[in-house]
Design a binder for these strands. Structure first.
Lengths: 199, 199
DNA sequence: TAAACTATAGCACGATCGTTCGTTTTGTCA
DNA sequence: TGACAAAACGAACGATCGTGCTATAGTTTA
């Protein structure tokens, strides 16, 4: 990795931290340059525009999400165990990689849903990816006979996303120490409803 | 209502629209003045600071929420019917009062969870109010014997908040026409789990 | 080591931000 | 109608925003 790529990665690390606290639109180039210990223009030349920077931040967040949430879960047994690992990883992943302000993609989803453009498109597709991943995991759990055959995978994914959002709000806004526990309880109740009846 | 209060209300109406689209921190005084058809300084003198404006917007949103979501639900029969009305009203209320960008309090909850200050405090307390209202409604449903006696009201409120958040994301970011339907299905599944067993 | 290239810094730009101040218009009431 | 208060305006402030341009320092390659 050349010098350019190296500092670019360092910048993106800082950018993730900052955007987790201030949001993707609150992320300013001046402040990011200061935190990164370089000049505004020096930093700017790595991206060419603020929009390009935001897109890079989204890609970086997606990459780390895949690395920290999805990949470890794939090591779990196919079925409910894997789905459960995804949910749990999805709830704690920002703590694990030290993002002090929670998941930037979650905030961005609310920030940009009314701002047409490339950033919105990227945020949308990242959310679709995540829901699709969840749907696949649910389908596998159906295939292995752990979830009922008439389970609606999209519905399950929808509710899991809801649990994650409520958890983030509980943890960060309400400082509720029980939020994570509530989340897992909600998840267990959810899958219990769709458990396959043993024949 | 004097002239001052009158224009102040008009400004707050516009501010609600704008902040539903751009967020509470993206709400700028210059743009708001333009949309309201008055000068920046004229508008500014109604509030004295941007923070004061943001607080006023939050109060206004809370008032309308109570008026459009909570109050109509109180006309429903005590119990599940009332709780269901709250959930449904909470999902459609921004359409009903023509907020094109969804619920400003929901976005603000994600925006300000890491920004200490009066605004954060107000957002937090508005969320606590809403959860408390839900908890009360659940307790009533327990009292009238429609929900089981060992129901955890806070858990139910937590999950309802999750459903609402997932619905907003589905509707606005993913443009999913089925989001509202999914929400009600999730809610019905939720209460079915806690149904009191008829003795 | 010299040349070629890349990365960073410095400076300035126009725009917009929140905010202040003094003035002018508007509304209210004796 | 005239006096007084309330409301709105216009201009300007310093700060910061994103974005260019040009020069210099640093790194890589011949």
């Amino acid at each position: 990795m050349g010098k350019g790529q190296q500092t670019r990665q360092a910048i993106l690390g800082q950018a993730l931290v900052l955007s987790s606290e201030c949001g993707l639109s609150g992320l300013s180039i001046g402040l990011l340059a200061e935190k990164s210990g370089m000049s505004k223009s020096g930093l700017f030349s790595h991206f060419g525009s603020k929009e390009e920077l935001q897109l890079a931040v989204i890609r970086e967040a997606q990459d780390r999400f895949a690395e920290v949430v999805v990949r470890p879960a794939l090591k779990e047994r196919r079925g409910l165990a894997r789905l459960r690992a995804m949910v749990r990883n999805g709830i704690v992943w920002t703590q694990k990689i030290n993002l002090p302000g929670g998941c930037p993609l979650m905030s961005a989803a609310l920030e940009f849903d009314d701002q047409p453009g490339a950033v919105r498109d990227a945020v949308e597709s990242s959310q679709r990816d995540w829901r699709r991943t969840l749907v696949n995991a649910v389908r596998i759990a159906m295939d292995v006979g752990e979830l009922a055959a008439d389970t609606d995978p999209e519905q399950v994914a929808f509710e899991i996303v809801g649990i994650s959002l409520a958890t983030q709000q509980g943890q960060r806004l309400l400082r509720d120490a029980d939020a994570e526990q509530r989340a897992m309880r909600a998840f267990e109740r959810l899958v219990r409803d769709y458990l396959a009846v043993p024949s």
